[in-house]
């Protein structure tokens, strides 16, 4: 379970006091609000990135472990951005292998070798009928394919939570609807709690929680 409590975001001009957030496994929270209100800043703070243009405080707990003192790489939180940043020098399979935990083991408890890791990555792709892009590089994929591969790569890392910063905003409306529906199903099936920043308030899945930052935004009188 992902818990974020007593979270305050502030700059010299405004302040936001967020309500406490509780996300069970597989649950999705959609964060909306006008530009410049700190949505992405909030995500990066949860991720563990250094925040420069705002002050943020609060407590983050994932499965009852406090994350505040942990660096990004220790938090087990995945990230999916609008540009999913598939690494351009690695093909799709290698991108997924890069995300597979180094400790991944086979059924006999042996560490996977190079070929087994590639097979594992291919199985993940085949599950979504995208095995045909395995040898492709990022620039050879369409926007929708890139988003799907990005999510598969993020999930291959076995994150305990996922953060998504307008991950489907660059897609055309029809593809966006298809891919986002598919993505939410994947997250739900795998039991990964997720927070998604979005501008599209008409496309929030009915089962998702919704947090509109504008409701909690207060200007600071100068």
């Amino acid at each position: 379970m992902l818990r974020i409590i007593n979270c305050h975001i502030s700059t010299d001009h405004w302040r936001i006091e967020l309500p406490d957030i509780f996300l069970q496994s597989g649950e999705l929270l959609v964060l909306t609000g006008p530009s410049g209100m700190g949505k992405s800043t909030f995500l990066h703070w949860v991720l563990g990135d250094t925040i420069k243009h705002a002050n943020i405080s609060g407590e983050i707990h994932l499965n009852d472990v406090s994350l505040n003192a942990l660096s990004i790489e220790k938090r087990c939180i995945g990230l999916l951005m609008q540009d999913v940043h598939l690494f351009p020098h690695l093909n799709v399979l290698d991108n997924i292998c890069f995300a597979l935990p180094s400790s991944a083991k086979d059924k006999g408890g042996q560490k996977l070798n190079k070929n087994q890791r590639k097979e594992a990555a291919m199985r993940l792709l085949n599950k979504i009928d995208m095995g045909y892009v395995g040898e492709h590089f990022a620039e050879q994929l369409s926007g929708g394919e890139r988003s799907r591969v990005g999510l598969i790569r993020a999930l291959a890392n076995q994150p305990k939570a996922l953060l998504m910063d307008e991950p489907f905003a660059a897609l055309d409306p029809q593809t966006c609807a298809q891919v986002s529906q598919w993505a939410f199903e994947q997250l739900h099936t795998q039991g990964v709690p997720a927070i998604m920043v979005s501008h599209d308030i008409n496309n929030i899945p009915p089962e998702a929680q919704h947090l509109d930052l504008a409701k909690y935004y207060r200007r600071i009188a100068s």
């Binding site: 690494f87 020098h89 993020a154 890392n157």
Partner: peptide, 26 residues
């Protein structure tokens, strides 16, 4: 987009210096 690659690398569990070598250097 080095900054984003490093962020992705770290979000996938790699240290910053490992991400520099594995993702940026090639």
């Amino acid at each position: 987009a080095i900054k984003d690659w490093l962020l992705q690398g770290r979000a996938l569990g790699y240290s910053e210096s490992a991400s520099w070598w594995l993702l940026v250097f090639p």
